[in-house]
């Protein structure tokens, strides 16, 4: 499980997985704040779909934090104003970098949360798909020319 996949699951999870993971780490090893969790912004880069020219779409508010476990750093960032979540993401990241976390138990929990996320997205897409247009055209239209 790579970092992007892991952070996606943790950011999008609506349960208590991130809080549980963070508590687990905090109870196991001392966590030092390297850079206080605070608000910042990200400039969003985008690619013009027509000419493929990169440009800046605008800025996005995020919360970000950096912590250390035995001098091993971890970084957490989340869209919006949620400094607590950014801190927890940083703790999990540091523990992962340190090698404390990737146990079979937690990987299984992450995969379960990922399955739940996929299920949620499928449900939303199923609802959106109800608005798919089924075109019916008159026979005139379909006549070979």
């Amino acid at each position: 499980m790579n970092r992007r996949q892991r952070t996606r699951i943790l950011v999008e999870d609506e349960g208590d997985l991130l809080i549980s993971l963070c508590h687990y780490v905090e109870n196991k090893v001392p966590v030092r704040i390297h850079r206080q969790s605070s608000n910042g912004c990200v400039m969003a880069k985008a690619l013009d779909a027509v000419q493929r020219v990169p440009f800046f779409l605008g800025e996005i508010l995020i919360s970000e934090c950096t912590v250390a476990i035995d001098n091993v750093l971890g970084f957490g960032a989340v869209l919006g104003d949620d400094t607590e979540k950014a801190y927890r993401l940083a703790v999990v990241d540091a523990a992962w970098n340190k090698g404390t976390l990737p146990t079979e138990y937690w990987v299984t929990r992450l995969k379960e949360a990922e399955a739940e996320l996929v299920r949620r997205h499928r449900e939303e897409f199923a609802a959106v798909s109800q608005t798919r247009v089924r075109f019916e055209t008159g026979s005139e239209y379909d006549k070979p020319r």
Binding site: N39, G40, C41, V42, M43, A44, K45, A46, L47, A49, P54, F56, L57, E59, I60, L61, I62, E64, A77, H121, E124, F125, V128, T131
Partner: peptide
């Protein structure tokens, strides 16, 4: 307000082709 928060990052290009469509 935006001018009061530091900008520390530039994102990777947004993948608009892979967006989760609602329309």
């Amino acid at each position: 307000y935006r001018s009061t928060v530091p900008r520390n990052h530039v994102s990777l290009p947004l993948d608009t082709q892979g967006m989760r469509l609602i329309r």
